[in-house]
């Protein structure tokens, strides 16, 4: 039942994005949607369905500009380092624990960290996030990484938990 609903949703998205109303286009879309829904049936993709709630959607919309601001800052930061003739980098992998509990929230946090200045998620093991930093601070690199998670965790908790 849930798979059928997912396939229907995919099909509607297909039709909306292709604008193809001829029989061949509709049939191809139906086949692709069914295949996608079946392939993802056991992958826990329905965890994302919690987003279909007005309050959560509202916080997701608040999250977008916050993330966008981080992406822009992050780009300027990398651009500055890359252009600088001295190439000021001090790389390494730090770690930090996240307080988020649900899997989609943790996944979103890891992806957000990758898009923020000078940090990239390497792996998430349980609640420990391993983060590659382009600049590792002299003192307490893990604490610094931990503090960088905080602005995201509050919003992600409202969205996913």
């Amino acid at each position: 039942m849930r798979t059928a609903a997912a396939a229907l949703l995919c099909w509607i998205a297909w039709i909306a994005s292709t604008g193809a109303l001829d029989p061949v286009g509709l049939a191809a879309g139906a086949a692709a949607s069914a295949a996608a829904a079946l392939a993802l049936r056991r992958e826990g993709a329905e965890a994302g369905l919690v987003l279909l709630h007005p309050v959560r959607l509202f916080w997701a919309l608040v999250y977008l500009p916050v993330l966008l601001a981080f992406i822009v800052r992050s780009n300027l930061d990398v651009a500055r380092r890359v252009i600088d003739p001295r190439l000021p980098i001090r790389p390494g992998i730090a770690k930090a624990r996240t307080t988020l509990r649900s899997l989609p929230a943790r996944a979103a946090l890891a992806n957000s960290v990758t898009l923020t200045p000078g940090t990239m998620s390497v792996d998430l093991v349980g609640d420990v996030l391993y983060v590659h930093r382009i600049w590792v601070p002299e003192e307490d690199p893990d604490g610094a990484t931990r503090r960088e998670l905080e602005p995201f965790e509050g919003l992600l908790r409202r969205i996913f938990e």
């Binding site: 390494g92 992998i93 590792v136």
Partner: peptide, 11 residues
């Protein structure tokens, strides 16, 4: 990691 890297908590 490149030479000059200062930390590898993952390893």
């Amino acid at each position: 990691l490149a030479p000059g890297s200062v930390l590898d908590r993952y390893a």
